[in-house]
């Protein structure tokens, strides 16, 4: 038979736990813990950065250090991506010396490059920040990736006998770029429409009120 007090406590058990230790208590506990066994530590060093090993006792420091390293890595990657992106046209333009191997390529290339340039200038008319869109980095990344595979394909063009296949791949590469840019344009256009709609709505309301 459960009495009333027992039942009350049981029903509200969670609410009785109102206290919390100070957050820094873990540091004290950690400080007194025995050092991790050597092979465990070695694994940490191997997976992560060497300099972190000496601070392995300080768990929070490690977390902060890891966050900083990650941020720096991301920042550097984005910086490199941004630098690479403007090079696209240069590498495409350099393709003219290729006449002997694939005579039709320069012409096709010029056509697509002009298309890509047109799309790019169209894109640049949109103010990305105003539209609240920061996708440009993703696009730049994608274009940079395409660009690097384009350069590789071109190198192969000189060494591989099967030029038709590679020329096909090169053209496909250029077409994908245009697709990517087109998709971005579509997104921006629909975004702009959405932005304009709320502006129009109040006007509609006004007229209906009148």
């Amino acid at each position: 038979m459960k009495d009333r007090l027992e039942k009350f406590v049981q029903d509200n058990r969670e609410e009785f736990d109102v206290f919390e230790p100070r957050p820094e208590l873990w540091q004290h506990i950690c400080h007194d813990l025995p050092k991790q066994s050597p092979e465990k530590e070695a694994r940490v060093i191997k997976v992560n950065f060497g300099e972190r090993a000496s601070f392995s006792a300080d768990f929070f420091f490690m977390r902060v250090a890891a966050a900083i390293v990650l941020l720096l890595g991301c920042g550097l990657t984005i910086f490199l991506m941004k630098q690479q992106a403007p090079d696209t046209t240069n590498t495409l333009a350099a393709a003219t010396s290729i006449n002997a191997i694939a005579p039709e390529l320069p012409e096709v290339e010029a056509y697509y490059v002009s298309q890509i340039e047109a799309k790019k200038s169209e894109l640049s008319e949109y103010d990305l920040k105003v539209l609240g869109l920061d996708e440009q980095q993703v696009i730049d990344k994608e274009l940079a990736r395409l660009d690097s595979s384009y350069v590789q394909l071109k190198k192969q063009l000189y060494t591989t006998p099967n030029t038709d296949e590679i020329v096909g791949a090169l053209i496909q590469n250029l077409q994908i770029r245009i697709k990517v840019l087109n998709r971005q344009l579509e997104v921006l256009q629909s975004l702009e429409q959405n932005k304009q709609e709320p502006n129009q709505e109040p006007q509609n309301d006004d007229t209906s009120n009148v």
Partner: peptide, 23 residues
């Protein structure tokens, strides 16, 4: 095995309840 991260996980999981017991 003395893994500090695992120890911290257990600490996070139980410290509040255990602190209230102790309290």
């Amino acid at each position: 095995g003395g893994d500090h991260r695992a120890q911290y996980e257990l600490y996070k999981l139980y410290s509040k309840a255990m602190f209230n017991v102790s309290m």
